[in-house]
Amino acid sequence: MIIDFQMVFILFSSLFAILNPFGVIPPFLSLTSGYSESEKVKIIQKSMVAAFLILLVSGLLGKYIIAFFGVSIPAIRITGGVLVFIVALEIITGNSTKQKALKSNLPEQCYEVEDISVVPLTIPLYAGPGAISTMIALTAQSSSYIHLMYLTMALIMCIVISYIILRFSKDLEKKLGKVGFNVLTKLMGLMLMAIAVQMLLDGIGGFIGLENSANIIFNNT
């Protein structure tokens, strides 16, 4: 079997933009400021495993969930597009959930290693509603096992790269500086907004019966 690396890269780009591990770095460094390196590594490992399981289950069961509630695929696309657009807008304007976490007084239990790993680090800072809805949208249309395999490969790539980014987040922030880090985050937001608009256009096109030739993310493989 020949792997369609272009499709894997497209799926990876979509997921990586919505997950945006760079945006997790500031709250992560703030939440773990009093932890040793070994404790930080354990937190990252548990968070990435939790994120992988949450997103994988969302993708695998998403089609059955929307079928149970009688929701159409175009509706999922539009809903996902709206959520992703809101996330992208918050990233660009500097008012995202990730940044709010730095300004808010987090509950005392969040300073437990186990609690930080899943809440708030994984949900909602990393694998939030936008990421979950994107996974559902990416798997809702295609019944091909090859497509699911490509999506799983893309998800694994995102998790591995996110782990590396968080593992060396302190060094990365120092090298990029505040200005470089902000520019990178804004670029991720712009890319994410473009993906959101495409999802909205595909959803609207699905409702009115139009085929969008530009849409290659959701095509069956």
Results as ranks from 00 to 15, higher is better:
residue 12 F to Q: 08
residue 84 V to P: 07
residue 33 S to E: 12
residue 29 L to V: 05
residue 132 I to S: 04
residue 189 G to R: 08
residue 38 S to I: 01
residue 23 G to T: 04
residue 120 P to C: 01
residue 221 T to F: 12
residue 30 S to K: 13
residue 138 L to Q: 15
residue 183 V to R: 03
residue 31 L to Y: 07
residue 128 G to E: 01
residue 134 T to L: 15
residue 165 I to Q: 09
residue 129 P to Y: 14
residue 77 R to C: 08
residue 217 I to V: 15
residue 56 L to Q: 07
residue 137 A to P: 05
residue 59 G to C: 11
residue 82 V to E: 08
residue 182 N to R: 13
residue 16 F to N: 13
residue 186 K to V: 12
residue 169 S to D: 05
residue 108 E to R: 14
residue 22 F to Y: 12
residue 72 S to V: 05
residue 191 M to H: 02
residue 188 M to C: 04
residue 58 S to Q: 07
residue 108 E to G: 06
residue 108 E to A: 13
residue 196 A to L: 11
residue 114 E to Q: 10
residue 214 A to C: 04
residue 77 R to D: 11
residue 22 F to E: 01
residue 117 S to D: 10
residue 24 V to L: 12
residue 60 L to R: 07
residue 142 S to Y: 02
residue 177 G to I: 13
residue 167 R to L: 13
residue 69 F to S: 05
residue 96 S to E: 12
residue 96 S to D: 12
residue 196 A to G: 10
residue 142 S to K: 00
residue 17 A to F: 03
residue 31 L to K: 04
residue 34 G to W: 00
residue 100 K to Y: 10
residue 185 T to G: 01
residue 19 L to I: 09
residue 163 Y to E: 03
residue 146 I to L: 13
residue 129 P to V: 13
residue 147 H to V: 02
residue 202 D to F: 08
residue 144 S to P: 01
residue 105 N to A: 11
residue 165 I to V: 14
residue 13 S to I: 08
residue 176 L to Q: 01
residue 141 Q to C: 06
residue 119 V to H: 00
residue 25 I to R: 07
residue 188 M to L: 06
residue 213 S to P: 04
residue 169 S to E: 02
residue 120 P to D: 00
residue 16 F to W: 12
residue 40 K to G: 08
residue 43 I to P: 06
residue 19 L to M: 12
residue 151 L to W: 03
residue 87 V to I: 14
residue 172 L to E: 00
residue 3 I to S: 06
residue 199 M to G: 02
residue 27 P to L: 01
residue 123 I to M: 09
residue 146 I to V: 14
residue 194 A to N: 07
residue 192 L to R: 04
residue 210 L to P: 04
residue 11 L to W: 02
residue 114 E to N: 11
residue 32 T to C: 08
residue 113 V to A: 13
residue 32 T to H: 07
residue 112 E to H: 10
residue 77 R to E: 14
residue 13 S to G: 05
residue 64 Y to S: 12
residue 172 L to W: 03
residue 181 F to M: 13
residue 66 I to F: 11
residue 114 E to W: 06
residue 127 A to Q: 03
residue 16 F to A: 14
residue 83 L to V: 14
residue 80 G to R: 03
residue 203 G to L: 12
residue 29 L to C: 07
residue 146 I to M: 11
residue 126 Y to V: 00
residue 46 K to N: 14
residue 9 F to K: 06
residue 117 S to H: 01
residue 53 L to S: 11
residue 29 L to Q: 05
residue 149 M to D: 11
residue 122 T to N: 08
residue 134 T to E: 10
residue 200 L to G: 03
residue 98 K to G: 10
residue 154 A to W: 06
residue 219 N to I: 09
residue 184 L to S: 08
residue 40 K to M: 02
residue 55 L to M: 15
residue 54 I to M: 14
residue 203 G to C: 09
residue 103 K to N: 10
residue 50 A to W: 02
residue 114 E to V: 06
residue 134 T to Y: 11
residue 110 C to H: 10
residue 145 Y to G: 12
residue 197 V to E: 05
residue 148 L to W: 01
residue 76 I to G: 02
residue 149 M to N: 11
residue 102 L to F: 04
residue 147 H to Y: 15
residue 109 Q to M: 10
residue 38 S to K: 04
residue 103 K to G: 04
residue 166 L to S: 08
residue 175 K to Q: 04
residue 181 F to L: 05
residue 81 G to A: 03
residue 101 A to S: 12
residue 7 M to P: 01
